[in-house]
C-alpha cells in the first residue's frame, strides 16, 4: 500500500506530469463543450419550452461558455428560432460564462455538481448584460435537463423537472440526434 502511494508521489513529481494532467483535463473539457454546443442546437430545434424562452431574444445574440484562461471555449448564436453552435473559441460573444479553471468545470461536466453551485462557490464569472445572462442560464438549464440522465439531474439542477410523455420522446430524439450533430461539428472544427 505504502509503496503504491510512494509510486504515485514519484510519478506526480516527474517534470512532465503537470502538463500531462492538464492535457487530459483540457481534452475532456473540450469534448464535453463540443457535446454541449451540439446539444444546444438539437434541443433548440426540438423542445417547445426552449423555443418559448428564446422567442424574445434578438436575432444574432451570441454567447460563449468556456474555461479561463486558455480555454477551451464554445460560442453559440440565436438565429431564427433556434440556436446555432458557431464552433470552438471566443467568436465575439455578447455574453460569456466562464469557469475560473479546469478544476471548477470538471465536476459540472461530469454531472456531479450544478453550475449554480459552482457559481455560488465563486468558481464562475459572467460577463455581459446580466438580464441576458439570466436568460442564457435558463436555456442552459433546459439543455441540461434533456442532456443528463434523470438520476443525475438532482445534482445538476436546483429543481428536477418532471417530464411529460411528449418531453420524454423529445429527450429520446435528442439522444439519437446528438451523436451525428457532434460528429458533424467535430469534422468541421
Amino acid at each position: 500500500m505504502l509503496s503504491i502511494q510512494k509510486g504515485v508521489r514519484v510519478f506526480r513529481g516527474l517534470p512532465f506530469y503537470p502538463v500531462l494532467q492538464n492535457r487530459v483535463k483540457y481534452t475532456f473539457c473540450s469534448i464535453v463543450l463540443s457535446v454541449l454546443g451540439s446539444a444546444f442546437e438539437v434541443v433548440s430545434k426540438r423542445a417547445p419550452e426552449f423555443n418559448d424562452e428564446i422567442s424574445t431574444w434578438e436575432d444574432g445574440r451570441r454567447f460563449a461558455i468556456g474555461i479561463l484562461s486558455r480555454g477551451p471555449y464554445i460560442t453559440l448564436e440565436k438565429r431564427g428560432d433556434a440556436i446555432r453552435f458557431l464552433g470552438k473559441g471566443l467568436l465575439s460573444p455578447e455574453i460569456s460564462m466562464f469557469f475560473k479553471n479546469l478544476d471548477a468545470a470538471i465536476p459540472v461536466f461530469l454531472g456531479l455538481k450544478g453550475s449554480f453551485q459552482v457559481f455560488a462557490e465563486n468558481g464562475m464569472i459572467v460577463d455581459g448584460n446580466l438580464s441576458h445572462t439570466m436568460e442564457v442560464n435558463r436555456v442552459a438549464n433546459i439543455v441540461n435537463a434533456y442532456l443528463f440522465p434523470g438520476i443525475m439531474l438532482k445534482n445538476v439542477l436546483k429543481r428536477t423537472p418532471r417530464f411529460n410523455l411528449l418531453q420524454l420522446t423529445v429527450k429520446a430524439r435528442v439522444y439519437i440526434e446528438l451523436m451525428p450533430a457532434f460528429l458533424w461539428h467535430a469534422a468541421r472544427n
Partner: peptide, 15 residues
Amino acid sequence: KAAINDGSLVFNPVE
C-alpha cells in the same frame, strides 16, 4: 418578468 431576469435569483435556494 423582470424578477426572473434579476441576477440575485441565481443564489436563491429554490428555482
